[in-house]
Design a protein around this nucleic acid. Sequence first.
DNA 1: GATTTAAATGGACGATTGTCCATTTTGTGA
DNA 2: TCACAAAATGGACAATCGTCCATTTAAATC
Lengths: 213, 213
Amino acid sequence: MTGRRQEIRERNRLSLIEAVLDSVAEKGISETSVSEIIQRANLSRGMIHLHFGGKDNLVDEAARYSSEQYYNGIYDLLEATGQTGQEHIEMIVRGDLSETILNKKNVSIWYAFRGEARNRAAIAAFSDTRDAKLRNLVFNAFARIAKETGTEHPNQVARDATHGTLAMLEGMWTDYLLHPDSFDRDEAMRIVFRFLRAMFPKHFDLNGAVLSE
Amino acid sequence: MTGRRQEIRERNRLSLIEAVLDSVAEKGISETSVSEIIQRANLSRGMIHLHFGGKDNLVDEAARYSSEQYYNGIYDLLEATGQTGQEHIEMIVRGDLSETILNKKNVSIWYAFRGEARNRAAIAAFSDTRDAKLRNLVFNAFARIAKETGTEHPNQVARDATHGTLAMLEGMWTDYLLHPDSFDRDEAMRIVFRFLRAMFPKHFDLNGAVLSE
DNA sequence: GATTTAAATGGACGATTGTCCATTTTGTGA
DNA sequence: TCACAAAATGGACAATCGTCCATTTAAATC
């Protein structure tokens, strides 16, 4: 009646997924073997086949789970902010570069899966950091900003600003991947906002990152 | 006397490296086995041990070689351009997004190695797309531009512009990785230059990408 | 052309891979 | 408490992994 059985089952299932993510983060994909996974999850060898039908499916599921965690993190932040375009943008940029989201483990996992994306459709589907939903949020925020500036082609400007901003954030992640210890979050933020301020002087004038010079 | 012996030896060595890169591009790192490599190179099993002492060393060397190819491509372009800051920047951006450098094979290889970078120091050393040399080139170009604008802190502005521009290019590469068929080079270029125009209106006004709206 | 020797071959080897199922364990309902 | 069934176990299995070396091939030297 307690459903204890199903509860244990689901806990084990999740243990396997988290074991994969831990292993991928620490050892990389190529060293994430079945033996490695079941050892970390402290479960028996047959569990992978039982729960996922095979190792590949488990890894795909781990990629999906990891991606979901990322988006949940971002969306949670957005609910705690104001409604103006610049507030949204600022929160997304700040969140994307925050310790909670941009940290060694997440970055290791993210890039490990990216490396496999080209050869595994299931992984490619979950390795786009900037999915349609997030893109739309950013676009709508920029569209509001662009319209307020009275520019000639606000949608086109907003589209380009979205694309460029998300690309720049991607690049910052890569910086962090390659130089995690010398990476400076404030600097990254300041740079993104310097570009945004250049495009929308009235909206990002005193906002955003530390404006040190 | 002809050195025919050494010539064959070096050709075989190179065949192994190129076989690794082909395999990594087509099948990914995890499926790039010794058997796969020697089959592509049409050489015998022992050659890897003979030339490189083991598979790992060969893969590291392939990463180094691939990185070298990238930089040579960029530097070649720079020699064929003018000397103003904006000409340099434009050539680097244009080159970085050109078919010669940004194509499916290169991107597959690059991201495959990136995925391993965190766990293999030898690969990490060669997976920084924007090494000190290239960074300096970009920085010097922006420094000249910034000084001409008479801004207050030209070096700081140039540093940020360098960081932001290279980050944005990284992001464009990721776009290409994940959506190679819908990726639009002109659009990517236009966006980069839209940001640069916002920061340096006088220098990128009529330059760079197609200015369609 | 004979000799020397560097280069290349290809299979043997033990270790490790992922899959799968006969068996055991354990929660659930009678 | 017992019988049932779902869940978990752990080892057998063939396949594949990378390494290494005894042997063969062929370029270089005499």
